[in-house]
Design a protein around this nucleic acid. Structure first.
Lengths: 330, 330
DNA sequence: CTGAAAGCGCTTACAG
DNA sequence: CTGAAAGCGCTTACAG
């Protein structure tokens, strides 16, 4: 009955059960040393009455707990990212661990703030879903298990990576575009600060060139990985003329471009074909017209959780370059 | 140069700077007692060299830190929910606080696990975006600041709430439907375990009855708040006949119904009008055909953060029932 | 201004 | 099996 308002501590339980705090700890944990049945019963009764659960903070300080991971995601608004995050969280939960989720918003300063938060919380490992290069990241990687998902930071080749071969996927997209023999191809690529966007762009450009249709600078424009930015980019592009094939750096950009197409009266996919990247889980519901690259987000989660376990064990997992599928809708 | 691999502690900094740990603490914190310029300089130099940042765990155990909040969200896959979560996180970040995000997946057992996680981490307060009723919730509310967003738990009327008047909004939706004089109206409502879904259903039913078109049981079906479930529900509904107006419990359900409509060859909004609820941020990009209730998610975030601040201060904020907008697309 | 010390909640060698 | 004690990283009265 002690401290009816505040949260009960191990001391309260010990007092109520008439045993030492050491016995309470032993009874609560499978760990070192057993306790007699009588002690266990007393402790369990007291714990139940006081609604006691051990303080994670106390445990963490003691240095034993290592069951918390952090996920830094560039944008929670992107359903592809949030699907990966959720699949990872589910798996961690299943093994009794917890995940803290932070948004970096593609901003190095904000990412560093997240990382500081993460560091001070002594997490066991950090998943970075679309990292940006930032000073704090280099420091973090020195004393924490870190894993890149979907995007790596070029200056940190030692950090394990889970993703696809974006260059080859982009090449395949470009070839599929060429097979349709469009009159004019527009390209809205992602920000070149992102290694993934950069590699995708290389794939697009080289395949178009190889197919005898090198991209014209006037037909290309850069966008952030958002619907808003894709919309703006499409607006600029269509000011230059008409396009019947629009190749986009990811699905979010494609959604934005789609809206602009509608506004200027184009029917999709009748008047123009739009190509994205990721296969956002929304597509099957809301964007059946979108051609895209199906990135295996469930396998991303599996590989990431597995790779992290290896890292925690002190081993360096292989980079996982997973298979993708080209999804052409017609 | 101590412990080059592990994270530097306050002791390492004190040793490197040649001062006591108390002085390090004072130099790092604005709090009690200043330090001389000389001491501060030494500490800052040492801290920078060792890349020291105070351990949140140590601070939390000491009982001072209270800058962490938790958000329990029912599904990260719903863009409306994730938009609210992100707006709240941004605001907390701006005031130097952090937010931990957990998924309950509408599962009481999983929600309780999240809550246990939350409790043991000594968070300052918990935002519940679409809570379910669970034993742990009642306990948590006794010693932690808790706030409901978008959905309340009926058995806990004392917990502050941020939301809209769902009954009245549903009534307006139903009236708008009737104005179009559809041949046959189908209704796919949300799960009745959710107070919000229940109240919306009441609004729909009473307005239809008042308008002289009481709903027939065969024209109604219940769904979970997901696209998958909305799709299934629509399939069942269309097995019963044809509908040219489909009223859905939320936008996710509406997306699922939309897919089913496409599959059976219906043009939206030509052959049938679909009505949702929430105005998911995606709509403007991907679902311009959807009629819906625009729920002010930014204001949800503002009110929630403000209300939480009051709770922390020991005051009980008023429930915030915010204005909504009917969005009719034609 | 500064340092030694207490104490937050825990776990685990160490004695008994 | 059990308890007293040390110590994880911090902050803050308490002396000086």
């Amino acid at each position: 009955m002690t401290s009816p308002s505040g949260k009960a501590s191990i001391k309260d339980v010990a007092r109520a059960a008439g045993v030492s705090i050491a016995s309470v700890s032993r009874a609560m944990n499978a760990g070192t040393g057993g306790v007699s049945a009588a002690t266990r019963a007393k402790v369990e009764k007291a714990a139940a009455e006081l609604n006691y659960s051990p303080s994670w903070v106390g445990q963490a300080l003691r240095g034993q707990t290592n069951d918390t991971y952090a996920m830094i995601i560039s944008s929670i608004q992107n359903n592809f990212f949030s699907a990966v995050a959720w699949e990872i969280e589910r798996r961690l939960n299943d093994q009794g661990a917890a995940m803290l989720l932070f948004n970096s918003n593609e901003d190095p300063a904000l990412q560093d703030r997240c990382l500081r938060e993460v560091t001070s919380r002594q997490v066991a490992g950090v998943f970075l879903l679309c990292a940006v290069d930032s000073p704090g990241l280099t420091v973090l990687a020195k004393h924490t298990s870190v894993l890149f998902i979907n995007r790596r930071v070029d200056s940190m080749p030692d950090i394990p990576f889970v993703g696809i071969d974006d260059r080859s996927a982009a090449t395949e997209v470009a070839r599929a575009v060429l097979r349709e023999k469009p009159d004019r191809i527009g390209l809205i690529h992602g920000p070149q600060r992102s290694a993934t966007s950069r590699v995708r762009l290389e794939g697009f450009l080289s395949a178009f060139a190889a197919g005898g249709r090198p991209m014209q600078p006037a037909d290309m424009v850069e966008a952030e990985l958002s619907m808003e930015s894709g919309y703006d980019a499409a607006r600029r592009l269509f000011n230059e003329g008409n396009f019947d094939a629009l190749v986009c750096g990811n699905d979010q950009i494609a959604y934005g471009a789609y809206r602009r197409c509608r506004e200027i009266g184009l029917t999709i996919p009748g008047d123009a074909a739009i190509y994205g990247f990721d296969d956002n889980p929304l597509n099957q519901w809301l964007a059946p017209w979108l051609n895209t690259v199906s990135v295996p987000h469930i396998r991303f989660a599996e590989e990431a959780v597995q790779g992290m376990a290896m890292l925690i064990d002190g081993k360096r997992p292989q980079d996982a370059i997973l298979p993708y599928d080209l999804l052409l809708r017609r």
